[in-house]
């Protein structure tokens, strides 16, 4: 069986670093791993998706509709966009932060109301105010690692393995802050 984790957010929210920490973790468990990333134009404040797939042998680097075990979402609207990628009993972990896309800023479209409730109706959904926790850890930029902590609680890997993966991936300068962000995410209990 292939495990599938999808990370979605807005360009600049650190989906790349998150998928790389996950990749390092999964590699340390002796698994085959494939990650798919987004670079270039789409990174500039647009919707960004990275895929993490692992198992005995992984072929495609892409997660498709109905395949994801987890969707880790750094923003509400991006979470909503990714819901259909979850398998029936998959789990959505969503940072409740809202970032308005340009069509909303220009007034061409409205930011949808009641997204969280609609998502909760469709699938198992954990809502997290990751922004507050990230600020508590030292920077709004750590939202991604807070959410990784929330994911860690759902998965079977040891905290040691997660910590090790963070240590080998995150630059020294930001390590303490990210370790704190991870710990806050890990402690977070929405249920």
């Amino acid at each position: 069986m292939t495990g599938n984790i999808m990370i979605v957010g807005v360009g600049g929210q650190g989906t790349l670093l998150t998928s790389r920490i996950l990749g390092t973790l999964l590699l340390s468990q002796g698994l085959d791993v494939k990650l798919s990333e987004v670079h270039g134009m789409s990174q500039r404040g647009g919707s960004v998706i990275t895929y993490v797939r692992y198992g005995e042998k992984v072929y495609s680097p892409i997660i498709e509709a109905g395949q994801a075990d987890y969707v880790l979402a750094f923003e509400q609207l991006e979470a909503a966009r990714a819901v259909g990628y979850l398998r029936k009993d998959g789990c959505l972990l969503v940072n409740t932060q809202k970032l308005e896309p340009m069509p909303v800023i220009t007034g061409a479209m409205a930011y949808p109301e009641g997204l969280l409730a609609s998502m909760q109706k469709r699938c198992r959904t954990l809502c997290v105010d990751a922004l507050s926790l990230a600020e508590q850890a030292g920077s709004a930029k750590c939202v991604n690692v807070v959410m990784l902590g929330v994911l860690a609680r759902q998965m079977k890997f040891s905290v040691d393995a997660w910590t090790q993966a963070i240590r080998t991936t995150v630059p020294e300068k930001f390590l303490a802050m990210n370790e704190k962000a991870f710990a806050l995410g890990l402690q977070y209990s929405a249920e």
Binding site: G11, G46, S47, E64, A65, R87, K88, P101, S118, R122
Partner: peptide, 22 residues
């Protein structure tokens, strides 16, 4: 036949998020 047997019902008509100048 499709790749996945069952999937979570997707959400429709969401505003797009094109790339923007930072």
């Amino acid at each position: 036949k499709p790749l996945a047997k069952e999937k979570t019902e997707p959400m429709e008509a969401l505003p797009v998020r094109p790339p923007v100048m930072c």
